[in-house]
């Protein structure tokens, strides 16, 4: 893997005021790097802060504290309009809900052209039309669809329109916020295949946020597991699946139902109890080359010792 970091997130925090006294720590000190050209998976259950992380990175929310560096420049520090516009072109987002993510009063052409118009990328009407047709073809839709309204399309088709909208401004980095969880299985595969194809063709980098681990495993090179606003484990996707260290990751993996009846008959689930380990003293440490874990000092040492004996230390 190359070492060209496209995104560096350092100790990112996003706290929301909920009521007078209560503060919700949606994202509570998250750090990770994403390398150019890779797909970085971010998984976790609802409310763990994975979507908030994505939205904070793209500046939909202002971070409470921490640093987000994109191509080496601090995203939350930039102020000039020109810089912001440049940033908006380079980083794009694909959303979860194919029904809510397209403006129902705009035609497909207007939707796809939105970014192009905001940034004034193309002047002539004919060129714009041509670009829209190109983009529609890229995502596997017909050019006749340009004049249609979103409600006429199925969920999968709408999601592809959303992808075309993001691609219109030629981004380098795309945050995909649960792009397939609202879609049917057969359609999920279409969208995932399309995303992989586009990655190869345009050299895109993805941050793929999801709760469906099997799909994340399929598409991602590296995966981070989030729990209660923190990343508990980060590793190459194979390593994470074959050698999960954090008890939460294990319980998550053991809970995914697989489409294999024989396997399901013999499944045993591990149950995660957050009280079983000392979360207050835990720090994010690299226990093995490229395998990061939120753990205490003692646990860290135990892993170091155990590694020589086998790939999976028992707890």
């Amino acid at each position: 893997m190359n070492n060209d970091k496209i995104l560096e997130v350092k100790n990112l925090k996003q706290h929301f005021q909920a009521g007078r006294k209560r503060i919700v720590k949606a994202v509570d000190g998250v750090s990770f790097d994403i390398y150019r050209g890779e797909t970085f998976g971010l998984v976790g259950e609802s409310g763990c802060g994975k979507s908030t992380t994505g939205r904070t990175i793209i500046r939909l929310y202002n971070a409470t504290s921490g640093e987000v560096k994109f191509n080496g420049i601090d995203v939350h520090g930039r102020k000039s309009k020109k810089d912001l516009k440049q940033f908006n072109r380079q980083m794009q987002m694909i959303f979860q809900d194919p029904y809510a993510s397209l403006n129902p009063r705009m035609t497909v052409k207007e939707i796809i052209l939105e970014g192009i118009e905001i940034h004034g990328l193309i002047e002539h009407e004919a060129a714009k039309t041509k670009r829209v047709e190109e983009l529609l073809e890229t995502v596997g839709l017909n050019k006749e669809h340009a004049t249609r309204y979103p409600h006429e399309f199925s969920g999968g088709q709408r999601q592809r329109i959303g992808i075309a909208r993001a691609l219109a401004v030629d981004p380098e980095f795309i945050i995909a916020d649960e792009p397939i969880s609202a879609l049917d299985v057969s359609i999920q595969a279409q969208v995932v295949n399309l995303m992989k194809e586009l990655q190869e063709k345009h050299g895109l980098t993805y941050l793929f946020i999801a709760h469906d681990l099997s799909m994340v495993k399929y598409i991602s090179d590296r995966i981070a597991v989030m729990y209660a606003g923190k990343i508990v484990e980060l590793a190459d996707s194979d390593e994470l699946y074959k050698n999960p260290l954090h008890p939460y990751t294990r319980s998550l993996l053991s809970a995914i139902p697989l489409p294999d009846p024989d396997f399901e008959r013999t499944r045993e689930r591990t149950i995660y109890d957050p009280a079983q380990h000392d979360a207050d003293n835990a720090k994010f440490r690299e226990v093995k080359q490229g395998h990061w874990l939120l753990c205490t000092e003692e646990a860290y040492k135990a892993y170091q010792v155990n590694q020589s004996f086998g790939p999976t230390p028992s707890d």
Binding site: N88, Q92, L102, E114
Partner: peptide
Amino acid sequence: QEFILAARTLGANNKRILMKHLIPNVT
């Protein structure tokens, strides 16, 4: 709604969001 968020990630300013996205949907 996500389509408003999408417009913001594309760099749309407040005026554009009000005129192009919000008002037409409230008409």
